[in-house]
């Protein structure tokens, strides 16, 4: 395993790897396209490179390099990116990438991971390192509550049901998983039983778990710190449309850029809250029962 970095190794903590293995981290400066291709070369010669930086630079900024040098070439490069989504906060729209899931899931051969918390992020590192092929994994800068247990299994391609329920299913990824659980607790008080699924693998999609949720609960709300254009909502919607169409509501960023502000303020302003997920559930139930 080797790590390549782009002048952000301290803030995303890959510097810790360099402390243990000083000759296995390559600091390549503010030159992310170069970083990705260097990683591809390392992979082609048998190394397992982890390329890590902020999500906007490890996805959109380097998109065609990833497409050609990593995915088309089918190389064993693991792109791990922090600072995804609105919760980057005060840096503003240039740094708040809400489109990376869309970009990455559109690339053939790419595995796309969005862990829900710290322990799951660690499992993503292990699982990505253990599999062959390109991986993109994105997570947020902000603190998140732990919603998975250390003992929970983690398999790429398998969504996990965190809470069972029968009236509606809430499918979230990343920081929105905790908000789905919060929403489920609120719904329970209204005697609505909500299933919560942690969709930490966005691609390949766990069709079986999603299909079962559609059939057994009859309605789905998705929640993501990402644009609803081609994010997990769109992925789930096309899966259920093909198998077992049910009403769906999507909580996420609505085809707009973000702006400066504190993380929580932004989540509120852009509607990425447990309340919006509850509203989505009400909306889905209304449409289903019509």
């Amino acid at each position: 395993m080797v790590v390549v970095g782009a002048d952000t190794t301290e803030s995303i903590k890959t510097i810790e790897f360099a402390k243990a293995f000083p000759d296995r981290l390559f600091q390549l400066g503010i030159a992310e396209p170069n970083m990705i291709s260097v990683a591809a070369g390392l992979a082609a010669a048998g190394k397992i490179p982890f390329a890590a930086t902020y999500s906007v630079f490890g996805s959109a900024h380097t998109y065609n390099v990833i497409r050609q040098n990593v995915a088309y070439t089918n190389l064993n490069v693991k792109i791990f990116c922090s600072h995804a989504g609105l919760t980057v906060g005060p840096d503003g729209a240039t740094h708040q990438i809400n489109e990376d899931i869309a970009l990455m899931r559109g690339i053939p051969r790419m595995t796309v991971l969005v862990p829900a918390d710290g322990p799951e992020t660690a499992k993503c590192v292990d699982a990505a390192g253990a599999m062959k092929g390109p991986v993109y994994c994105r997570f947020s800068r902000t603190n998140v509550p732990t919603v998975t247990a250390a003992g929970d299994g983690f398999t790429i391609g398998m969504a996990r049901v965190l809470r069972d329920g029968f009236d509606v299913t809430l499918i979230g990824c990343g920081i929105m998983v905790a908000r789905c659980l919060e929403a489920a607790a609120t719904l329970e008080k209204e005697r609505i039983s909500a299933r919560v699924i942690n969709l930490s693998t966005v691609k390949p999609l766990d069709l079986a778990t999603i299909d079962r949720a559609a059939r057994e609960t009859g309605g789905i709300v998705t929640a993501e710190e990402h644009t609803v254009v081609h994010g997990i909502g769109a992925a789930v919607a096309s899966a259920i449309a093909a198998n077992h169409p049910v009403p769906i509501a999507m909580v996420g960023v609505q085809d707009v850029f973000g702006e400066s502000g504190e993380a929580e303020e932004l989540l509120h302003k852009y509607g990425l809250t447990a309340e919006k997920i509850v509203e989505g559930a009400h909306d889905v139930l209304k449409r289903r029962d019509r």
């Binding site: 005060p90 840096d91 503003g92 729209a93 240039t94 740094h95 702006e259 400066s260 502000g261 504190e262 303020e265 932004l266 302003k269």
Partner: peptide
């Protein structure tokens, strides 16, 4: 500067 709804974004717009 850098506050919600400001014209002075964290990076220039």
């Amino acid at each position: 500067f850098r506050k919600l709804n400001s014209r002075l974004q964290g990076h220039p717009e």
